[in-house]
C-alpha cells in the first residue's frame, strides 16, 4: 500500500489541519477535538445543522461546512463513528439559540454515539436537539434481519436541503420536517471495482479478483451484497438505477434529482460515462431530471466504483436544493 500520509494514526488530525489551512474563511476547529465548525458558528438565531461520522468519506463531512449547508462536522477515526463527547461539544458549539438538528447516517455506531451525545447535551440543559437518521442504501433490505438500511450518498442531499431551510430562517421543527422528507424520498445503490485500503490496516479490506465486481457495496469497505462478473458501464448504470427506482416506486413523470457519485479513486471521465446511461434511462422512463450532480461527494478512501442516488423532488425541495450554498466542496450560486 502506498498512500500520501505520514503515520496512519495521525491521518485524521493532519487532514483536519490541512482543511483548516486551506479554508480558514469557511471552517475552524474546536480546540482539542476532531470537530470542525463554520468559521462563524454558532449562527445567531439559525438552527444549527450538524453531522459527523467516520473519516475516509471526504469531502464528507467537513467539506460541506458553510453558508446554506452544515454548521458543524465531527470527524471520527477512519470509518469509525466519532465519540459521544466530541459530538456533544459540537452540538454545544453550533447552538445559536434556535436549536440543533443532527443528521445521522444509519450505522449502529453513529446512532448510538449521537444518542449518547444528545443525552449528554440534555444533561447540560441543551434541550432543543433533534436528529434524523438517513438510510438511503437500497442494497440493504430493511428487515428484522438487518440493522436497517445504511446511510450513504443521499445524506448530502439532506445536508443541502436542511442547510438551506435553516439559512432562510425556518425553525427546528420545520427544518426537521424537510430533512425527513428527503430521507423518505431518496435512494442510493453503489458498486465497487476494487476494495479500499484503510491507513491502519494497509491492505485491501476485501479481495476482489480482476474479473469480478461487488454490487451493493457500502462506503466503509464492507463487502457488498453480491459479487458478479465484470460488467460494462452501461450495464452497471442500468443495474444501479433500476434497483433505486424499484425501491422508490415513483409516480409516472415524477421530477427527480440524481447523483452519480465516485467512491474516491474513480476518474471523473468514468462517472460521466455512467451518467450518460443513467440519464438516458430516466429519460426513457419519462422522469424529469431537475438537478444532476456528477462527482465525488461521499467517498470510501481509495475505492474505485460509484453509486447512483435518486431523490424525488417537489417544489419546496427543488427550491431548497437550488438555493445558494457556499462551502469548500459545493458552491451553488442560486440566482
Amino acid at each position: 500500500m502506498k498512500k500520501l500520509i505520514n503515520e496512519p494514526e495521525d491521518v485524521v488530525d493532519e487532514m483536519l489541519e490541512g482543511m483548516v489551512a486551506a479554508h480558514p474563511e469557511y471552517v475552524r476547529r474546536l480546540e482539542g477535538t476532531n470537530v470542525l465548525v463554520r468559521a462563524d458558528a454558532p449562527v445567531e438565531g439559525m438552527v444549527g445543522i450538524v453531522s459527523g461520522g467516520g473519516s475516509g468519506h471526504e469531502p464528507t463531512h467537513a467539506g460541506y461546512l458553510g453558508e446554506g449547508m452544515l454548521t458543524g462536522a465531527a470527524a471520527g477515526e477512519v470509518f469509525t463513528s466519532p465519540t459521544a463527547d466530541q459530538l456533544q461539544g459540537m452540538i454545544a458549539a453550533c447552538e445559536g439559540g434556535a436549536g440543533v438538528l443532527c443528521v445521522v447516517k444509519n450505522y449502529e455506531g453513529d446512532v448510538m454515539n449521537f444518542e449518547t451525545a444528545i443525552e449528554l447535551a440534555e444533561l447540560e440543559g441543551e434541550t432543543d436537539v433533534e436528529y434524523v437518521v438517513v438510510d438511503d442504501d437500497v442494497a440493504v433490505e430493511d428487515s428484522l434481519y438487518t440493522s436497517g438500511r445504511r446511510g450513504v450518498c443521499g445524506t448530502i442531499l439532506v445536508h443541502k436541503i436542511a442547510g438551506a431551510a435553516a439559512a432562510r430562517g425556518d425553525d427546528l421543527s420545520e427544518v426537521k420536517r424537510l430533512a425527513e422528507k428527503v430521507v423518505d424520498g431518496v435512494g442510493t445503490m453503489g458498486m465497487a471495482l476494487t476494495s479500499c485500503t484503510t491507513p491502519e490496516k494497509g491492505e485491501p479490506t476485501f479481495d476482489l479478483p480482476d474479473d469480478e465486481i461487488e454490487l451493493g457495496i457500502g462506503i466503509h469497505g464492507e463487502p457488498g451484497v453480491e459479487r458478479t462478473d465484470v460488467m460494462g458501464a452501461d450495464a452497471v448504470a442500468e443495474h444501479l438505477t433500476e434497483r433505486v427506482l424499484e425501491d422508490l416506486d415513483l409516480a409516472e413523470g415524477a421530477r427527480v434529482a440524481t447523483i452519480v457519485n465516485g467512491m474516491g479513486a474513480t476518474p471523473l471521465m468514468e462517472l460521466y460515462v455512467v451518467n450518460r446511461r443513467v440519464q438516458e434511462l430516466l429519460d426513457e422512463r419519462g422522469f424529469d431530471v431537475g438537478e444532476c450532480w456528477v462527482g465525488d461527494y461521499m467517498t470510501s478512501l481509495d475505492m474505485a466504483g460509484c453509486s447512483v442516488t435518486v431523490l424525488e423532488l417537489d417544489e419546496e425541495l427543488e427550491e431548497l436544493l437550488g438555493a445558494p450554498a457556499d462551502t469548500p466542496a459545493l458552491t451553488v450560486r442560486g440566482d
Binding site: 471520527g76 477515526e77 463513528s81 463527547d85 448510538m112 449518547t116
Partner: peptide, 15 residues
C-alpha cells in the same frame, strides 16, 4: 472507552 473508541463498540463497551 466512550471517548476514544467510537464506532459501535465504543458506546457498547464504554457506556
Amino acid at each position: 472507552l466512550l471517548s476514544k473508541v467510537g464506532g459501535a463498540s465504543g458506546p457498547l463497551y464504554g457506556g
